[in-house]
């Protein structure tokens, strides 16, 4: 039997998907981004740089800045919540750890839109939280959780939190406790031990978790649609609108390419710093 044949059989199906449904579509989007748009939508195959020039206008730069701001705040909040959480649960015994981590995965397995709907019932002006606070006279009028930037950020944190907890947990739970003890023996206080011993060892997990939260935030248009009340325009919403409402595919494509470029830069920096690609898939953390 030829040596080539089994290889071909095994590799062709996956290669088919990756070439025809990943590589070619992406190349095509790059091409569209340099084309002109027709009056009623559609693509005119005439080369232009207009779409990229348009991105540089203050209007869209503002939307970019706003999206990055929301993504950054979301990432930081997720990190601040997840880090202590991951530390605390890795101090539990194995059985409790398994149960707690499964509890973190459980919401991740239920539909994220449904969970957002639950969040809406909780957060709106006449929602459960506001009603409760009003009833105990802690506040005089409802806190505006929704239909603004706060709403978008709460929704993003809520949807993406497990992506931060899981990599951190799997890294922290494998840390060698002896190192901490050694540091203590050498006279380091808790804070110093954390800063010089624990933190450096969890560097890659922090980075991987941050990328896994930051990048989706840019594209989760449904969160800002539902919790932002259509007022917080994020890059994801603009791309969606260009493709499905305004019919300006070339401009939408140019916007998409620009966030891909940004993502690539982040990933390259991450790899240069020594991070592993597998961690970005969250896969080495299964189990």
């Amino acid at each position: 039997m030829s040596k080539k044949l089994p290889l071909l059989i095994m590799i062709l199906p996956i290669a088919f998907f990756m070439v025809f449904l990943v590589a070619l579509p992406c190349i095509y989007v790059v091409i569209i981004s340099f084309m002109e748009k027709g009056i009623y939508g559609g693509i005119e195959y005439i080369f232009t740089l207009e779409n990229y020039k348009l991105i540089l206008e203050p209007l869209y730069l503002k939307i970019f800045a706003n999206s990055f701001f929301i993504a950054l705040v979301t990432t930081i909040i997720c990190l601040l919540i997840s880090y202590p959480f991951a530390c605390f649960i890795s101090q539990k015994n194995k059985t409790v750890q398994t149960i707690l981590i499964t509890l973190v995965i459980l919401p991740f397995l239920t539909n994220s839109l449904i969970r957002i709907h639950g969040l809406i019932i909780l957060l709106r002006d006449g929602g459960i939280i506001n009603n409760f606070l009003l009833n105990i006279n802690l506040i005089d009028e409802p806190i505006k959780f929704m239909y603004n930037q706060t709403g978008t950020i709460i929704g993003m944190v809520y949807t993406l939190l497990p992506f931060m907890i899981l990599p951190l947990y799997s890294n922290i739970s494998k840390l060698d406790a002896n190192l901490n003890d050694a540091a203590k023996d050498l006279g380091a206080n808790k804070f110093k031990t954390f800063l010089h011993v624990t933190l450096p060892q969890t560097k890659y997990a922090i980075l991987a978790g941050s990328i896994m939260v930051f990048v989706p935030t840019l594209s989760y248009f449904f969160v800002s649609d539902l919790l932002g009340g259509g007022k917080t325009m994020m890059i994801g919403n603009v791309i969606k609108n260009q493709f499905l409402v305004a019919r300006n595919w070339p401009f939408g494509a140019a916007l998409a390419i620009s966030i891909v470029l940004f993502t690539l830069i982040v990933v390259i920096v991450y790899r240069k710093m020594g991070g592993k690609m597998e961690q970005l898939g969250g896969v080495s953390y299964e189990k």
């Binding site: 499905l244 409402v245 305004a246 019919r247």
Partner: peptide, 12 residues
């Protein structure tokens, strides 16, 4: 939910 969305979807 809008005329434009309808047109965009039909054309694509």
């Amino acid at each position: 939910s809008s005329n434009e969305e309808c047109l965009a979807k039909v054309m694509s």
